[in-house]
């Protein structure tokens, strides 16, 4: 297994499904035999009114599950960008939801990917799948988990009750991967 140490903060407002895609990522990483930690917006991170979670993925034993300067950021709205952009590691990856974020990134020492997540999800017929578009863009870049394992995680977490949402979420993920691969 290739050596791997990745950490990412996913942030947005409540209802955008940021904790959900964090869980999908964590589950997929577990399926690939990695160590993984997932922490929701609890702890000092809770201040500021943004919902967020931190996911750490590694081949080795994971030390801190709390990350000061993440390698990657997935931000869904303006307040999350304001809060977390300064903390992104130099050379890190910033994936921002350009459908809702109205300003440019301030950092010029990081890689910025703009994803029109809400617009894309809306075109696919499921406004609420913007989070999946963002996750797709992220795994396209980072390749820390496979699409297949994300889909397996999606099946598990949607459960039978919400399985009707699987196809649009899958489509959103794939569209995100496409956007992220450009």
């Amino acid at each position: 297994m290739k050596s791997l140490y990745e950490n990412v903060i996913v942030a947005g407002f409540g209802g955008q499904g940021v904790l959900f895609i964090g869980r999908l990522l964590a589950y997929a990483a577990m399926k690939e035999g990695r160590n993984v930690t997932w922490i929701p917006s609890y702890g000092p991170e809770m201040r500021g009114g943004t919902a967020n979670c931190t996911v750490v993925i590694s081949n080795e034993v994971i030390g801190s599950p709390v990350i000061t300067s993440p390698n990657a950021l997935i931000v869904m709205n303006n307040p999350s960008l304001d809060t977390f952009e300064p903390r992104l590691k130099t050379g890190g990856l910033l994936i921002m939801n350009s459908s809702l974020i109205t300003r440019e990134a301030k950092r010029n020492d990081v890689r910025v990917i703009k994803v029109p997540a809400n617009k894309t999800a809306s075109e696919l017929g499921n406004d609420r799948a913007a989070n999946m578009v963002m996750l797709g863009a992220y795994i396209a870049h980072k390749k820390v988990v496979t699409k297949e394992n994300i889909l397996e995680a999606l099946k598990k977490y949607l459960g039978e009750k919400k399985m009707a949402l699987f196809e649009t979420n899958k489509a959103a993920l794939e569209k995100g991967i496409e956007i992220g691969s450009l």
Binding site: V36, I39, P40, G43
Partner: peptide
């Protein structure tokens, strides 16, 4: 501590 309670791990 609260972190251990909230955190998910395999």
């Amino acid at each position: 501590d609260g972190y251990i309670g909230q955190m998910m791990e395999p």
